[in-house]
Design a protein around this nucleic acid. Structure first.
Lengths: 250, 250
DNA sequence: CGGTAGCTTGAAGAGTATCAACCAAGGTGG
DNA sequence: CCACCTTGGTTGATACTCTTCAAGCTACCG
């Protein structure tokens, strides 16, 4: 889990790298013109991570920003005694380093194998100053992250275990759709303990709740990691906190 | 609690308004030169709120942004059955509307009497485009809010009631210091139920926990709303999650 | 084939919510 | 000026959800 960052040898990628990048339409690159993209491409360094590799640790000087190209990362914060909260899972197109002014506010760790674009902060900040559309793009990203964060606050502050798990499934599903994947069989690459630490629960409670939702016919679970959404409306009502709903327990 | 927005008659303030504003050094105005400030001042409309007035509601079109000049606001989200989470308390100098792209993500309500600067979003966005320092300022604000939000996630996800209340007291104290007030007798203008909904607890638990912290000599409470920090280090250790600490129960 | 990691299931325990009463302060009206 | 009511806060007893502790199960890998 604490393996060091394994970076590819410092070779530049072929010139077509950005053009061939599957995440380009999702990420900040999409807001740039041809010249701007070339300039951005000149700044980036590719990074590969294996499962469990730590990209950066909470509290370390935030000297670099990243764009996730492929794979899945988790961001988390730790309490001194080991309690952990996974603030977010990241997918291709997501930007890392937005919340981090001087020091990283979270640790970033690869959930599975992952590849990223790495930018030196100083160079990126310089480019952002000249490309005002980038600043707007980052501000939009920040807005979206703030909104998501507030929803997560509501989840952690007041939702029941069932509601939390339902919300999680629907959130993951929605993100899959954003990436052009199907809504219903949702692939969840992370382990139960990661889900638990994301929802403020324990692995046991997550497991029990998934079992319960399955027993109620709202979802199906295949091979542990693939979740089928069977009753979208009921699941959505549960996630939204409609306690009175006839299909909802607790 | 649902009283309508009470705005002052649509008079312009005297030209010296911004210059005389007590919050100017804290807010976005500080990043502008003389000309920029004049331009900003031309956009603003003053707003006064009484305790309980709702400035805007979650889900409404986000047509305006605000700068809090005086008083205290709370931002909150609601679940359909009434469960509420206060995402944040705002103090003079704080900006409202950063997280809101198309629609407000929270309801904003006055905790006590409050005064604000109101900006039409379209006009402000236009100014921001031309004053790039403003964009940088907003990005910095967004960064700080994201970082704060993540800490709050950790609090709601894994901290005990004692840790939550300790964190709350220290956060309020730190914010008071930012505004040039003393760290130790902290004035908390909000009611217990607001604190409870901010910490994901009930009023009873907040009350009991404050009583417990007082009994342990870590704090003192005067007139219900004024909190004296007696043992800063112990309180900080508690808030940080050092469960093993000798003075910490639970 | 043994060993380990991840997941599930079970029983007991803890922390906080819930329900309810009580108290203090402040406002109102007769 | 005092009885009455309302609001906000505290304290108490009980209930309940989720955690903790523990065991078992499955799949994968050396």
């Amino acid at each position: 889990m604490n393996a060091l960052l394994s970076k590819t040898p410092s070779q530049k990628l072929p010139a077509s790298m950005c053009a061939a990048c599957g995440a380009q339409l999702l990420s900040m690159c999409a807001s740039l013109d041809r010249a701007g993209r070339d300039e951005l491409e000149a700044l980036l360094e590719p990074v590969s991570l294996a499962s469990g590799d730590v990209l950066f640790e909470e509290g370390a000087p935030a000297t670099r920003s990243f764009n996730l190209i492929e794979g899945c990362l988790k961001l988390y914060k730790l309490l001194p005694d080991g309690r952990r909260l996974v603030t977010d899972f990241l997918y291709p197109g997501d930007f890392l380093g937005l919340a981090d002014k001087d020091h990283y506010t979270c640790t970033a760790e690869a959930v599975g194998a992952a590849t990223l674009c790495r930018f030196e902060r100083s160079a990126l900040d310089d480019l952002v100053q000249r490309q005002s559309c980038l600043e707007g793009h980052l501000l939009d990203r920040a807005r979206a992250e703030l909104a998501d964060g507030r929803s997560q606050l509501l989840l952690l502050g007041h939702k029941t275990a069932r509601e939390r798990v339902a919300s999680f499934i629907l959130t993951q599903s929605a993100r899959a759709v954003q990436r052009g994947l199907s809504a219903s069989p949702v692939e969840t690459p992370m382990r139960r303990v990661d889900i638990a630490d994301h929802l403020g629960l324990t692995t046991e409670t997550v497991s029990r709740t998934l079992t319960g939702l399955t027993a109620d016919g709202m979802i199906g679970v295949e091979a542990g990691r693939r979740i089928i959404i069977r009753e979208t409306d009921q699941l959505a009502a549960l996630a939204a906190g409609h306690k009175f709903h006839k299909f909802i327990k607790n």
